[in-house]
Amino acid sequence: MTHETPKQGWLARLFNPPRGSAPYLFLMPYIVLFLVFGLFPLLFSIYLSFHIWNPIKGLDSMEYTGFENYVLAWGDPVLWKALYNTVWLAITSGLAQHLVAIPTACVLVALGSRLRHWLTSAYFLPYVTSTVAVSLVFFSMYSPNTGIINKLLIALSESDLFGWAFSWVPDVMPLRWLEDTFLVKPAVAFLVFWKYTGFNIVLYTTGLMTIPRDLYEAARVDGASAFRRFWHISLPLLRPFIFFAVTLTIIGNLQLFEEPFILTRGTGGVGHSAETISMYLFRIGWEYLDMGVASAISWMLFILIGILTAIHFKLFGRQGLGEH
């Protein structure tokens, strides 16, 4: 007999793990999933962006090209068109979302709790509904001949009450919302606006609820009208929430994909008129089967989002985060 502890078999070791490792073992399922589906693709896409690779031809076809993918993407006018579209959609729908959400939230808070709960739930519904389903519904609403939007415009132009304001409608019918290069961006922007405003309303309602009631009462006694109470009390105290919501909007809107993809049936619209950067890199990757360039573009998009968010933080961060 020696004094050595008996050698443990692998099975025994598995059921008798070293001290202190228990937390990590419990976290293992998540860590494994994160490594496989989170970290690996991230690093792999950096690697890819410096290679030419057609995924169909297998891993052997990978070829190092240095910065060529980046140069290639940079020189493609469609990239700049897509970038313009993305920023246009982000600003138009984003601005509208916040300009509508803030006053709506104020009204909701003033309505009292029961009505507020019902209405915020209703406004939130689009946000939790499947984007694909919603986009398909909007697709049919925008349809030139059978869509409800054009039908409504025609009905309005024929009505006695509003006819005078809609006399231009018959001349331009049918409006091709999703094919017209001029109309398609607003059409997409409206869907995005409709889908995400509710989320912002909920956020701003929560924000408004944190403002003590007595501040409004003090302002009232100080002679401030409802609008001035909104302007001098609600708005400044809502700043951290506005900052947070706008950050989310910047990050989300720059990655816009499903809505324009489905509304334009994957084409990006006539002459790339509604193609966003995400759609563009999707097309490069899966239609042209050029994963290298697609990865390069996705990293360029990442850097763009980073820069814009940084500017936003720089400009509004100190106030936005409530540091005085």
Binding site: D214, L215, A218, P236
Partner: peptide
């Protein structure tokens, strides 16, 4: 003058 003062914090 409010019990809580109700000063405008911003």
């Amino acid at each position: 003058v409010f019990q809580s003062y109700a000063l405008y914090p911003h």
